[in-house]
């Protein structure tokens, strides 16, 4: 718990934690918090494109739906996408990185080459190709993100495993006859867990950005799903008049991604005191 207290001492980490807690709260209680929960699916054309103020705190969209309510329900979708996609990426990437880093043979080379190939295209471009094939749906977005995101963890875990592979505690475990699986799971993984946790936190933010971009390009879940990226795309034909329509979802994305990044920075300081902020950015993603 010492680490947690250190985390809370860090101002930016506290800020990040608050933002993320806020996001989770909004997502869980969207039904209660939203002034017009039914606006996710229904519309009131007479009330379309109203500016912020009055009963529509953040204005209304082209269907007359309350933007604030839609944002709250969008938070659910955002968390779901980010958490599930990142979990899959971690579950694929970490074992691959561990195995490639633990053994030093042809299999390692092959695994790392494969992840290099995935990294040879910007993630979003590959995600576009996959999402395009699979069709616009939330589970397809998650799949596209997982498939394109795991190499980041594979790379990270590979490098970290390599650096602890020859440490005394690993050699000792091997010497007393522990099986490779045991060494990887009980000795190596715990010692590299902090970098994985930091990378995953920042990665959650990255996933949200890419998911929003897919939504913006029309590759996300179809309307009327309140997806933040799609909401921004929809607003474009009503600019410059309906500025709130474009601004509100963007601010939501900004806040949430910033929350994850700040928390990630704070975690890095708290989990690994050797690396003060600013002197180690190995784990930064795109």
């Amino acid at each position: 718990m010492n680490g947690f207290r250190r985390l809370l001492r860090d101002r930016s980490a506290r800020l990040g934690l608050i933002v993320i807690a806020g996001l989770v709260f909004c997502a869980v209680f969207a039904g209660v918090l939203a002034p017009f929960p039914e606006d996710v699916n229904t519309y009131h054309l007479p009330r379309r494109l109203l500016g912020p103020g009055g009963i529509n705190f953040l204005g209304t969209d082209r269907m007359g739906a309350d933007i604030f309510s839609r944002l709250l329900f969008g938070a659910r979708l955002t968390i779901l996408t980010a958490v599930v996609a990142t979990t899959f990426a971690v579950l694929i990437g970490v074992p691959i990185g561990l195995i490639a880093g633990y053994y030093n043979n042809r299999l390692s080379d092959l695994l790392m080459r494969v992840s290099d190939v995935f990294l040879a295209v910007p993630q979003i471009v590959l995600a576009i190709a996959i999402a395009q094939t699979l069709g616009p749906a939330i589970h397809n977005v998650i799949l596209a993100l997982s498939i394109t995101y795991w190499p980041f963890w594979a790379r990270l875990v590979y490098a970290e495993t390599r650096s602890v592979r020859n440490e005394v505690f690993v050699e000792a475990a091997v010497a007393i006859g522990a099986s490779p699986l045991r060494v990887m799971a009980l000795h190596i993984l715990p010692s590299i867990a902090s970098s994985v946790i930091v990378r995953t936190t920042i990665g959650l933010g990255g996933t949200i950005l890419v998911a929003a971009a897919l939504g913006f390009l029309g590759l996300g879940p179809p309307p009327p799903t309140p997806e933040w990226g799609r909401m921004i795309a929809e607003s474009r034909e009503f600019l410059p008049q309906a500025w709130w329509y474009a601004a509100a979802p963007g601010v939501a994305i900004l806040l949430v991604v910033m929350g994850f990044n700040l928390l990630g920075d704070g975690l890095r300081d708290a989990l690994d005191p050797r690396l003060s902020r600013g002197t180690d950015d190995r784990t930064d993603g795109r």
Binding site: L209, A212, N261
Partner: peptide
């Protein structure tokens, strides 16, 4: 921190709104 957290398409729309449209 803000620069890395902003969705590029949103920033584009914002700048367009501010400098071009308004």
């Amino acid at each position: 921190v803000a620069g890395l957290a902003m969705a590029a398409f949103w920033l584009a729309i914002l700048l367009q709104l501010l400098f071009s449209m308004w």
